[in-house]
Computed example of a mutant assay.
Amino acid sequence: MADSAARRVRPTPQQLAAAQAKTIPDVLGPDLRVLFCGINPGLWSAAIGKHFANPGNRFWPALHASGFTPRLLGPWQQEELLDLGLGLSNVASRASARADELGPEELRIGGEILAGKVAQYRPRWVAILGIGAYRTAFGRKDATIGPQPVKIADSKLWVLPNPSGLNAHWTAATLAAEFAKLRAAADEG
């Protein structure tokens, strides 16, 4: 299927139901400036096999508005992130309709698995997209949005707001502003 035709694919209700508990591959490589880690794949993402694929998710617009990408990319261009020194993963690998369907133990185990990936690939920064998931997965109950005083392996750590459209506490502008703070730190080294 051509890329432009693939972008118009909308999963059917049956495909979304079948995506429950599926996983999607990470976008990882050496020498990453930032590894962005979602909480877990949503059903839309799992159905089409691409990160942050639901049209209501604000990850791709925030990434562009913050200056991480020179143009607005979408899930179908996710592999282009590697050329920009960016990667994608998740704290928990199992897809669900909502992140709150994950239990604390699943997040803690996912955090351990993610730490192993970080130790292997050694990105300069790891950005966890979701404060609640970070607090649970890594046992940091008092963590706030922004840079963290701890590292994952040897990688610096930043917590960003969850870009899901369900996270109404953050507007597109405030979300992009938080991403921009991380970009500025990543540009410094």
Rank of each mutant, 00 (worst) to 15 (best):
D154H: 11
V159W: 02
A19P: 01
T12P: 00
P161G: 10
L86M: 14
T174M: 13
P123C: 05
A2W: 10
R108Q: 13
E112W: 09
R71H: 13
P104M: 11
G103D: 15
P11Q: 08
A62R: 04
G110A: 09
E106Q: 15
A17N: 12
K50V: 08
A97P: 00
I128R: 03
A168E: 10
L166G: 13
V118G: 09
G111C: 10
T23L: 02
A180M: 03
G29N: 02
L84G: 12
P161C: 07
S66N: 10
D100M: 13
A176P: 05
G74P: 01
K156Q: 15
R10N: 05
I109P: 00
I145W: 04
A97Y: 05
V9P: 00
L28R: 09
R10V: 13
A65E: 14
G85M: 07
K141V: 14
V159A: 04
D100P: 00
G132K: 10
A143H: 03
V159S: 02
L175V: 14
Q120W: 12
L84A: 05
Q78E: 15
G49N: 12
P123I: 11
G165P: 06
T171P: 10
I145K: 08
S89E: 07
V118R: 06
W170S: 10
R140Y: 00
K141E: 14
L28H: 06
F68G: 02
A176V: 09
A184R: 14
V118N: 04
A172L: 06
V34S: 04
C37I: 02
W44E: 07
G49T: 07
K181I: 03
Q148T: 11
G56C: 05
A6H: 07
A62Y: 04
S164I: 04
I48W: 02
G132D: 14
I128P: 00
